[in-house]
Design a protein around this nucleic acid. Sequence first.
DNA 1: GTCGAACTTCGACTTAACTGGAGGTCATGG
DNA 2: CCATGACCTCCAGTTAAGTCGAAGTTCGAC
Lengths: 156, 156
Amino acid sequence: MGGVTALAHHLTIGQVAERSGVPHTTLRFYEDRGLISAERTAGNQRRYPRATLRRIAFIRSAQRVGLSLDDIAEALSTLPAHSAPTKADWTKLSKRWRTELDTRIDALQRLRDSLTTCIGCGCLSLRACGLFNQQDQLAEYGPGAPKLKAASEGGI
Amino acid sequence: MGGVTALAHHLTIGQVAERSGVPHTTLRFYEDRGLISAERTAGNQRRYPRATLRRIAFIRSAQRVGLSLDDIAEALSTLPAHSAPTKADWTKLSKRWRTELDTRIDALQRLRDSLTTCIGCGCLSLRACGLFNQQDQLAEYGPGAPKLKAASEGGI
DNA sequence: GTCGAACTTCGACTTAACTGGAGGTCATGG
DNA sequence: CCATGACCTCCAGTTAAGTCGAAGTTCGAC
């Protein structure tokens, strides 16, 4: 119960869980997957630097828009694990993701617009619309569960 | 092997699989989940109306942008299962999804822009940026695996 | 120095979305 | 009429992302 104090800039897992809204079980899971990391006390307990909160916010944001933890882990690997990222760090990350995010935004807009445009243009079959055409080109990039083997040119 | 003929506007599962690019196993799976349906021959084999191809294209598009099969199933339940959807059908579907899709597009753009904007404005902590703020509001809307229960406004 | 909350590991379970195999049935060109 | 390939059902396995519980350890306020 009492006041958990802990060295000002080192947060316990419970504190991080509370502040980030991410369950502590999930934080350990993220650690397993290499998304975050922590120092340990003499007694083997985790202590997180504040920068971790930022990392977690980023992870959740990226997840919300449909990116996998593997993709996110790869991107995050370019950021320093324990200190606050520098401008250069962000720029690097930004470059890698820009295209990927643009593609996804495009797909979403396409879907949304198809719902209207296809009606407007009378091509109810969708056949001439972006919806269909994208389908073919992005082909196996499709849905998201198992294997996802090849995955193409790696870069996210 | 030979020419699989079948009544012109009724496709076999193999034909649908080939034309849609979706494995036949997955087509049966989709049927279980109520996403598509088929008539049966006297011998109990599936025969799909052509409109099914459109449904499948829609399903895959929606999945690609991160919607769950449950969400998609719900939306599709407003469309006629066997005939081509009418303009009114599409309009109904469109209305239901518009907001949802807009929200997702927004989140994506926010993430993308955060990668640049946060650098530009110097708030490397992201704390003042959309990334963080959205987090709270969309809260439980978040990641996608099990339960998804209360989740609360945790606040990152 | 002790007591309870918070922490530790580890392994089993869950959900979503498939994927694959076994074992049997249907359809059709020769 | 029969071989072969496409189809059928059922069920078990996989991957991703968690989630839960047991059993034991550490922390820190009293």
